[in-house]
Design a protein around this nucleic acid. Structure first.
Lengths: 225, 225
DNA sequence: CATGCTGCTGTACGATCGTTCAACAACGTA
DNA sequence: TACGTTGTTGAACGATCGTACAGCAGCATG
C-alpha cells in the first residue's frame, strides 16, 4: 500500500505519443520477424509482442502493409546509418575508413543469423509490393553512395602519388575498375550471406581480410594508371 | 461430331499415375511461387494452377509443408543437376570444366529474376521448418562436393608442373587456399544475387570473367607452393 | 472536481486459410 | 457389358487472417 489512502489502481494501459507508439510497433514487427519469420507478420502476433490490442495498429497505420514498409525503412536505415557512423568515427585516411566500413559490416548487429532471416522475409515481399520497392530504392541509394564514395577516395589517393594531374575525368572509371567495384560488392554480400548461413565456416576477420585484399589489388591496378 | 454415334462426352477429369500427378503438383507450386511469391503458397492457388481440385493435394501429399519441401527438393536438384551436367559436358581439362561450371551458373535458367524470387521464399522458410532444413542439407552437400572437386582438380594441376611429389597431404589445404575457396563461393553467389537484383548492371560474361580471375590468382598462389 | 480530447480496447465481420471426407467417376479387367 | 479399384471432386469444418468501429479511459486542462 503506497502513498496514503490514494487508490493505487494500476491503469489498464498507458497513453503514448503517436510517434513513440509508432516506433514501438515498428520494433515489435522486427522482433516478430526475428522470432517467427514470415508467420510473425500478423496483426495479432505483432500487437501481442508490442503489448497492445489488435485495433491499435490500424489506429497508427492505415493498414498492415504500411507498417511492414515502415519497419523495412527502419531496418534499412539502421544498417546504413550504422555503417556510416562507423566510417565517420574512423581515422581520416581513406584506407582506414574502408577498413572501418568492412569491420562494421562483419560485426554485430549486422552479422547475425536473425538479421539475415529478417532480410530474407523482406526480400520475399519485394517483387510483389510496390511499397517495399519504393523503400528499397530510397535506402539502397544511400548505401551505394557510401560505398562508392569510399572507393573513389581510395582510388584517387592510389593514383595521386604517380601523376599529379589525372589523365581522364575521374568520374568515368575505366571498365576494369567498374567491374572491380561490382566484384567488391558481390564479395562483401556473398561473404556476409555465407557467414550467416554457416557461422563456423570462417571468422569475421577473415572476411574483412578477403575484402581488403580485393581493395588492395584494385588500388594497385589503379596506380598502374 | 466425331467417330460416328459414339457419345463424345468429354471426361470431367483425367486420372493419372500418382508419380506423374505429384510431379505436376510440384511444378505448379514452383510456378505459383514465381508468379505470386509467398502468397502463391496456398492450397487453392496451387491446385488452380495445376488444374485440379483443392482436395487432390492432400491425397498425394500428407500436408502442405510436405508439398513445399518436395518442391524445394526438386528446385535444388534441378540446379545442381544442371550444373553437374554442364561440367560433364565440357572438355576434360580442369580449367575447361571450371569455365563450364561458371558459365552455367551465369546463364538461364539459373540466372533469372523469377528464380531468385523462388529461392528467397524458400530461404524465408528455412529457419522455422525442419523439413526445409533437411532438404537443404541433403542437396547443398552435392553442390559443395561439385565445386570442391573442381577446385582440388585445378590446384592439383597447378602444383603438378613444379614438384612431382606433394610436400604435404593434398587434403590439408593451406589456410589461404581454404580462404580463397570461401571467397570464390562468396563472389559467385554475390554476383549472381547482384545480377538478379539489377540485371542491367553488368553482363553475365563479366561475372564469369571476375570469377575466373579469382580462380587464376588462386592457381598462381598454389603454384608458388 | 468536472470536462474534452484522443489514444486505446476488444468485439464483430467477412474472407481465406489447411484439412477432412463422403460421394463420384475414369478406366483396367473379367 | 458389368464390376472393382482408386484417382479425383467439392462441400463443409474450424481456425485465423486484416480491418472496422463503437465505446472505454488516461490524462491534460480549466
Amino acid at each position: 500500500m503506497k502513498s496514503g489512502g490514494v487508490r493505487a489502481r494500476k491503469p489498464r494501459f498507458e497513453r503514448q505519443l503517436p510517434q513513440q507508439r509508432r516506433q514501438a510497433l515498428i520494433e515489435a514487427t522486427i522482433e516478430c520477424l526475428k522470432r517467427y519469420g514470415h508467420e510473425g507478420l500478423s496483426i495479432r502476433t505483432i500487437s501481442a509482442q508490442a503489448g497492445v490490442s489488435v485495433g491499435l495498429i490500424n489506429h497508427h497505420f492505415p493498414n498492415k502493409n504500411q507498417l511492414i514498409a515502415a519497419a523495412y525503412r527502419h531496418f534499412n536505415s539502421e544498417l546504413v546509418g550504422g555503417l556510416q557512423a562507423a566510417v565517420e568515427r574512423a581515422a581520416d585516411s581513406p584506407r582506414a575508413r574502408m577498413r572501418a566500413f568492412l569491420e562494421a559490416s562483419f560485426c554485430p548487429p549486422n552479422l547475425d543469423q536473425d538479421v539475415l532471416a529478417v532480410w530474407v522475409v523482406f526480400w520475399g515481399l519485394y517483387r510483389h509490393s510496390r511499397l517495399i520497392q519504393r523503400v528499397q530504392r530510397a535506402t539502397y541509394r544511400g548505401y551505394v553512395r557510401l560505398l562508392r564514395g569510399m572507393l573513389t577516395e581510395l582510388l584517387a589517393q592510389a593514383r595521386a602519388p604517380q601523376r599529379r594531374r589525372p589523365r581522364r575525368s575521374s568520374r568515368a572509371a575505366r571498365p576494369d575498375l567498374r567491374l572491380a567495384a561490382i566484384g567488391l560488392t558481390a564479395l562483401l554480400d556473398g561473404l556476409w550471406l555465407e557467414w550467416c548461413l554457416e557461422p563456423g565456416a570462417f571468422r569475421p576477420a577473415e572476411a574483412v581480410a578477403l575484402c581488403e585484399a580485393w581493395v588492395e589489388s584494385l588500388c594497385r591496378r589503379a596506380a598502374r594508371s
